[in-house]
Structure formats: C-alpha cells, structure tokens
C-alpha cells in the first residue's frame, strides 16, 4: 500500500476514522449502483399479484422462475440473441479492418490531400446520426435493405472515432520496425499486416470492445430499420416486450430485461480490467 503522508497535525486516530468514512461512502455509492440490478432480479421472480402490495414484498413468494421461460417464449429472444451477436461481431470486424487501414495511411504515409481528408474526417465526427438517418433510410429502402440486417452491418463501419484512436496507436509503433522490414524487402501491405497490426493489438482490443458494446446495446437504428420480429435485436425486443406487457406484468417484463442484461454482465465481469482500461484510454465508450 502506498504511504499517504499525514497532513501536519492530523492524528493517526483521525486518519483511521477518515479511511473508514471514505470506504463507507464508497460502499454506499456502490450499493446505490447495484441495487437496481438486485431489485430487477428479485422482481423478475415475482408473480403479478405481488407487485402492488404495500408495504412491498422484498422477496418473491413463491419464487416464480416460470417468468423466464414465459418471457423467453413470448417473443423470439433466442433468435434475437443470435442476431445481436453476429451483427456486433461483423461490425467489429469491418470497423477494425477498414479503420486500421485508414489509420495507417493517416499515421505513416505522406500523401497529397492528407490534411484535407483528415480535416473532413474530424468534421464528420461532430455530425449527429440524426442528420444522416433520413437519407440513409431512403437509400437503404431503395436498395431493398430495410428490414434486413444489412442495414445495420454495412453502414456501421464508418467510424471516425475508430480511425482517430488507431492512428494514435499506430504512431506509437517505433518507425525503426517498419524501416527494418522495408530493408528486408517487405512491401507496404506486408508491413501493415505483419508489423503494424500485431503491434497495435491493445488498441484493436479496446476498440473492438467499444464497437461490440455500441452495436449490442444500440437501439436507434434497429428501431428504424427492422420490422420483422425474427430480425429484431435484443434491445428492440425488450422495448417491444415492455410495450406489450409493461403495464400489466412487471415480473415478466423485468425477466425480459434481465435476459438482455445478464450476458453482458458476465462478459464484463470476466474482462472488466481490460474493458475499463480501454474506456479510460479512449475517453469515450459510446456514452
């Protein structure tokens, strides 16, 4: 443990008390953050009759695990999981690949138009998606991609932030590595593929996580582009479910919400150190 020098005049007893207070305050904050999850889980096992009891019943009585199969069966959740998952994976792959290529050009190649393009790219970063969504919809409708996953996969890879982040990472790769490879006769592509990409793996990992999460949690585009129930992503289905059952059966609705939250929770708890570091590093994380 790092030694924190006592400020002059503070006694050890007071410091101890301060540390206890500090941990207590943090624990209180943590409880406030955790409580909604706990309450969601508890409620998701309750029957409809328990919802309006006053004072509130803390625990389900009886425990109604049936809410889960009921929620799962009411709408095609299994299908939605697969949809959300494969769309997110494709978004990650496409974004990483195209962004890394562009980032390499910006970071390491001197070319005409570089400054202009980079300025253009920075400007697009400020454009809210609401500006492009209407023409995008009209265009994709023309292509017959509305109510198809292509609408979520293909336009998704234009991500200025991804290029910006990877450019920072690529700039940090020692130029000597590239020069050595060039002396050995490696071409641009080989250098990019064999030297640069392996050296920016942490950046790719961080970006991959961010893109995956943004895709998985995304709601605006699926809401606009998808109609068929079997094409729905998880958040879209949860919203539809709440629309149908929200006012009548909270237990069932919260079971549906829990279904959408739990897999991400587990993934997060496994990879949390890496995810949090990447969020801090990128300074974004989508929200």
């Amino acid at each position: 443990m790092a030694v924190i020098p006592a400020s002059p005049g503070s006694r050890p007893g007071a410091r101890r008390l301060g540390r206890i207070g500090l941990h207590a305050a943090l624990a209180a904050g943590g409880l406030l953050m955790l409580f909604p999850f706990v309450w969601m889980l508890l409620t998701s096992f309750k029957g409809a009759h328990q919802m309006l009891n006053t004072p509130l019943d803390w625990l389900p009585n009886p425990w109604r695990a049936q809410n889960y199969p009921d929620a799962f069966g009411a709408l095609p959740f299994a299908q939605a999981y697969w949809n959300s998952f494969y769309i997110a994976v494709l978004n990650v792959v496409l974004t990483l690949f195209t962004s890394a290529m562009a980032a390499y050009a910006f970071a390491r190649i001197r070319f005409r138009g570089s400054g202009l393009l980079f300025g253009l790219f920075l400007a697009t970063q400020m454009v809210p998606q609401q500006v492009t969504v209407v023409p995008l919809y009209l265009m994709l409708a023309e292509l017959g991609w509305v109510d198809s996953h292509l609408a979520l996969i293909v336009p998704g890879f234009v991500n200025p932030f991804a290029v910006f982040l990877l450019r920072q990472f690529i700039r940090a790769v020692p130029i000597e590595l590239e020069e050595a490879a060039r002396l050995d006769g490696a071409g641009r592509w080989t250098i990019f593929w064999r030297i640069v990409l392996p050296n920016v793996r942490p950046g790719l990992g961080a970006l991959g996580i961010i893109v995956f999460l943004a895709s998985w949690n995304g709601f605006f585009f699926p809401l606009i582009f998808l109609n068929s129930p079997e094409l729905a992503t998880v958040p879209l289905l949860v919203s539809q479910f709440a629309g149908q059952h929200g006012a009548t059966d909270y237990g069932l609705t919260l079971a549906a919400s829990a279904i959408s939250v739990i897999p991400m929770m587990i993934a997060f708890l496994i990879g949390q150190r890496r995810i949090l570091n990447s969020m801090a590093m990128s300074g974004l994380g989508g929200r």
Binding site: M33, L34, L213, N217, V238, S260, M265, F268, M279
Partner: peptide, 15 residues
C-alpha cells in the same frame, strides 16, 4: 460503478 453503463439503455428505461 461502471456496471450500469454496460446495461442497454432500453433495459435501463424499462427498469
């Protein structure tokens, strides 16, 4: 502290 930010906004709204 980060857990809530992992939750889809839609689920946050419903909750």
């Amino acid at each position: 502290f980060y857990l809530p930010s992992m939750t889809p906004y839609v689920a946050v709204g419903v909750l």
